[in-house]
């Protein structure tokens, strides 16, 4: 398969966990921890799927989502993955055009299935 997933996340242990799960399933995982340069990273990397955290150093994940939807990546499948699981955040993500919204802690298989569903061949 070798399809590319870009993970924007600042928590090293979570990065490691997701990378492990997806790599094992055959995805090519790129990671990026900084919010400010995230949009550029998406543009340059042209991933098949984006997993986006909300609370990032430098810039909010919602902001990044909005910019991507308004500009370079209107159709890119984006999975919002956040520790903030309130309804307000869910609504916000939906409104801004997130493809999926998942809260931490997550089930590994759920993440994997979602990634497959969104960016599968």
């Amino acid at each position: 398969m070798g399809r590319r997933v870009l993970l924007i996340e600042d928590e090293p242990n979570i990065i490691e966990a997701i990378s492990f799960i997806l790599s094992k399933d055959g995805w090519t995982v790129h990671t990026h921890a900084d919010g400010e340069t995230a949009v550029d990273r998406v543009r340059d990397g042209a991933p098949d799927l984006l997993i986006l955290d909300v609370m990032l150093p430098g810039r909010s994940g919602f902001d990044i989502l909005r910019e991507l939807r308004e500009g370079d990546a209107p159709d890119l499948p984006i999975l919002m993955l956040t520790a903030r699981g309130q309804q307000r955040d869910r609504d916000m993500a939906e409104q801004l055009g997130a493809t999926r919204f998942m809260t931490k802690p997550f089930s590994n298989s759920e993440v994997l299935e979602t990634v497959r569903a969104l960016a599968g061949p």
């Binding site: 492990f20 520790a83 699981g85 809260t103 802690p105 997550f106 590994n108």
Partner: peptide
């Protein structure tokens, strides 16, 4: 949630 995410994820692995 952040530490619990890691704990859950790695324990599943």
């Amino acid at each position: 949630r952040t530490p619990m995410t890691s704990i859950r994820s790695f324990s599943e692995i």
